[in-house]
Each structure stands twice: as structure tokens, then as C-alpha cells.
């Protein structure tokens, strides 16, 4: 890793890594799957869900990346998976079992159909 030796260094480092960080570039065509992996998410089975997602993505050759992330704040609905696509509002899935995780890849990512029954409707106003 490089040492950042000025504010300019930090800024140029930021523009370099933007493509590889887990944040979505507007035109990348890449889909991000955020899995809530704080203590409660893991206790509810988030690691198993992540493993199924990874397997399914590989199997179906989808251009998607999994981000293990922190707490979404909706502990009651753990494990949770968020599907982020550029230019579209995020879709949050709650109570995700390994079976639901499989369907998320197959139906949502491949066929483009949202699994309405498993969607949590959240409206969070960000910073």
C-alpha cells in the first residue's frame, strides 16, 4: 500500500480506488449485494446466506460483487440482503434464508424480477 503524504495524495488515491471499492459506479453495470454482517446478522445466519450468494453468482456468471457490511438497523428482519444497481433504487430483502438467497440471484439478478414477498419497504433519508 502507498503512504499518503498529502491531502492531494488522499484525493488521487480516492479516485484510483473508486472503481474497485464496493461503492457503485453509475455506469459499471455491476450489481452489488450487501449482506448485513454485524453480530446480530451473523447470529441470524448471514454467513450462510453470503456463501449461497457467492456460489450462485459464480454458477450463473453474474456480474455482481458481495459486500459484507455492517448493521442495516433492521435487526428484526435479519439476515438482510440489499441489491444495489446503478440508476435504480436499492431493494432490501429481509428474513433471507439460503433458499431466498438462491432466488435473489436467479430471479432478481438474472431474470430481473423482484421477489416482492421478501422485500422490506424502507425509506431512509441519507446524509
Amino acid at each position: 500500500m502507498p503512504k499518503l503524504l498529502s491531502w492531494e495524495d488522499l484525493k488521487s488515491y480516492r479516485s484510483e480506488i473508486k472503481g474497485e471499492s464496493s461503492l457503485l459506479e453509475p455506469d459499471s453495470g455491476r450489481v452489488l449485494l450487501a449482506v448485513g454482517e454485524a453480530t446480530c446478522g451473523i447470529a441470524a445466519g448471514a454467513k450462510e446466506v453470503e456463501a449461497v450468494l457467492a456460489k450462485e453468482i459464480a454458477k450463473r456468471g453474474v456480474n455482481a460483487q458481495i459486500i459484507p457490511t455492517g448493521c442495516f438497523g433492521y435487526c428484526y428482519a435479519e439476515p438482510m440482503v440489499e441489491v444495489r444497481k446503478a440508476g435504480e433504487p436499492s431493494v432490501y430483502y429481509g428474513y433471507v434464508t439460503p433458499e431466498v438467497a438462491k432466488s435473489i440471484v436467479k430471479r432478481h439478478l438474472v431474470e430481473g424480477r423482484i421477489l416482492e414477498d421478501n422485500v422490506l419497504h424502507l425509506e431512509v433519508e441519507a446524509e
Binding site: 471499492s21 450487501a34 448485513g36 457490511t69 455492517g70
Partner: peptide
Amino acid sequence: CGVIDPESIND
């Protein structure tokens, strides 16, 4: 929280 990967400083 719930947006970035907490184990990645790049995020």
C-alpha cells in the same frame, strides 16, 4: 453502517 464494507479502508 450497512452501506460500506467495514473491513475495507478503501470503502
